[in-house]
Every structure is written in C-alpha cells, then in structure tokens.
C-alpha cells in the first residue's frame, strides 16, 4: 500500500514531527514499504484470540502509599533547557 502525502502530514502533526518537504517522498515510500509488511497480519487466524499486550499476562502490582521522593528540583533544573523561578518555560501558550 502507498501512504498518501496528506496522511503523512496528518500523522506527522499528531507526532509533532516536522518533515522537510524534500524528505517527504522518501519517508512516504519507506513507510509504505513497512506498511506493506503489515498485510501479513490479515492472514493470521486470530479472530478467536484475546489480544496480548503484556507478555506472560501478569497483573498490576500495587505499592504502599508512602512518600519516598524528596525535592530534587535543583538536580532537574541543571538539565532543563529553560527554567525560571522554578518553572519550566515554553513559548506563551494562548488559551
């Protein structure tokens, strides 16, 4: 199957990835080839099966409600691209 450019744009927007116009065709072609592999799935006899999202079918483990993490903002601030007054900064969000 071949991936439409409009679909690629939509997906890239959802994924917040900018694709240079000159790379679009190559990306669409490579993705189309990969999507071609997926046609195999339609042939698998799985209609009666439950999906398996976690290998081994485990169940969720619960932890006790205790505070174990102390303030480490200074550590995280050191690796933050842009922080002021303890806040992470992003270009103004208009609401």
């Amino acid at each position: 199957m071949s991936l439409q450019t409009s679909t690629l744009h939509h997906i890239a927007q959802l994924a917040r990835l900018r694709i240079e116009p000159e790379h679009e065709a190559a990306m669409a072609a490579e993705m189309s080839a990969v999507l071609g592999l997926f046609e195999q799935l339609a042939k698998a006899p799985v209609d009666a099966l439950e999906p398996l999202s976690h290998p081994g079918d485990p169940t969720l483990r619960l932890r006790a409600d205790t505070v174990t993490e102390l303030d480490a903002r200074d550590d995280f601030e050191r690796i933050a691209p842009s922080m002021m007054g303890g806040y992470y900064l992003v270009p103004k969000v208009i609401e």
């Binding site: 997906i11 990969v34 698998a44 099966l49 999202s53």
Partner: peptide, 25 residues
C-alpha cells in the same frame, strides 16, 4: 510515524489490535 499511524483512528483495529492478537498466537 509508523507507530502513530497504527494507533490512529481508523487503523487501530486492523493493525495494532490485530497485532496483539497475533502476539498471543
């Protein structure tokens, strides 16, 4: 992009959901 595509509306069942069933198989 591939992962976003297989999870997106209209493709989830044919791709992602089905792949999980194949995983059990």
């Amino acid at each position: 992009l591939t992962g976003t595509y297989v999870l997106s509306a209209g493709y989830y069942d044919a791709y992602y959901h089905r792949a999980l069933k194949v995983r059990r198989l």
